[in-house]
Design a protein around this nucleic acid. Structure first.
Lengths: 175, 175
DNA sequence: TATTGTTATACTCTATAACTATA
DNA sequence: TATAGTTATAGAGTATAACAATA
């Protein structure tokens, strides 16, 4: 019941994983999902290498960012922002608390909610993590060039909304 | 030990999952890994919607493509092409065989290897799947625009090679 | 000795349902 | 009734080690 460390996403790392030059990939290299998937795996592996000293997963880092920039949010709200089920966010939040990065404060108005804040140690760690992750971005820029790098964000963010609900519908389930 | 259907990657689908406009995401929207990850999840969900009739996962589709375009490859070779561990490819190959799409032939030269080929049913299914998946690409193009869409592939493929091993090293483990 | 396909296994991630205590 | 945090659980993905048959 105690696991200590939510890390791995696919940290086996070390291996090739490139596109095999003497095979015919046919339409695969023109399937955005396939290409994005391969890119995501590679980036996460690279992220783990860069962050190896810090023992932090991409999910943990993203949670720290949201909490740092939006202090006082509830767990449900942070989970929602990161598109994580609140049930699955519990373990993540708990570990960040146990490592002394995050505080879960009771708030006056509502005894159910817990407001998330960074501790001073959390702020320190976050600053360092942010620096490291910026180094990681720099590494990626070196691989694909600054122009291509810059050009990726807007379309990818747009793609991330393909399944967004139309704004004038029932808007049923929240989880 | 028999599971019949390797499907879901994250097919819960249906919900928003967009970037929350009234929260500060800080550096997150400038972290390629985060943006690529969110895009990948959205694309896979969209893929499942488009392919819902065909009952096919992205991994199964990609395997069919490789087998279709490179008939006679061994399991290990296909797994390698897709960056899947050969151990984990066993179930996938078995299901494609059980659904009548793929044949595993013994070859004269080597009694260990199994050569993978599409059956005629497999070729038929593959043609349909390819058509559907092209429809899916069209949908993505509509969301981000044709120019942005076209511009994504080359940089993403390049990113996918960030961790590629330098060509003049020990080249140890194969799996 | 090395490789192919395979099994077994552990761990992570995600989704769902249900509970509790509040509201 | 509805919501926040939580627990339990099942399914799917992935990594590792080991084995039998074959090379």
């Amino acid at each position: 019941m105690s696991k200590m460390s939510n890390l791995p996403v696919h940290p086996a790392a070390g291996s090739p994983a490139t596109f095999d030059a003497d095979l015919d990939f046919g339409p695969l290299t023109r399937r955005l999902g396939y290409v994005v998937r391969r890119a995501q795996i590679a980036i996460f592996q690279s992220f783990f290498q860069t962050m190896s000293g810090a023992q932090i997963s991409p999910a943990q880092y993203s949670a720290l960012v949201i909490i740092a920039r939006n202090p006082g949010l509830s767990q449900t709200r942070v989970a929602q922002a990161l598109a994580i089920k609140k049930a699955n966010f519990v373990a993540l939040a708990r570990e960040l608390e146990q490592r002394g990065f995050v505080e879960r404060r009771n708030i006056p108005g509502d005894k159910r909610s817990l407001a998330l804040h960074l501790t001073s140690a959390g702020r320190l760690a976050y600053a360092e993590l942010d620096r490291l992750s910026e180094d990681h971005e720099a590494r990626l820029r070196e691989v694909i060039g600054i122009e291509a790098y810059e050009a990726l964000f807007e379309p990818l963010i747009r793609v991330a909304t393909v399944n967004a609900v139309e704004p004038n519908l029932s808007d049923s389930d929240a989880d």
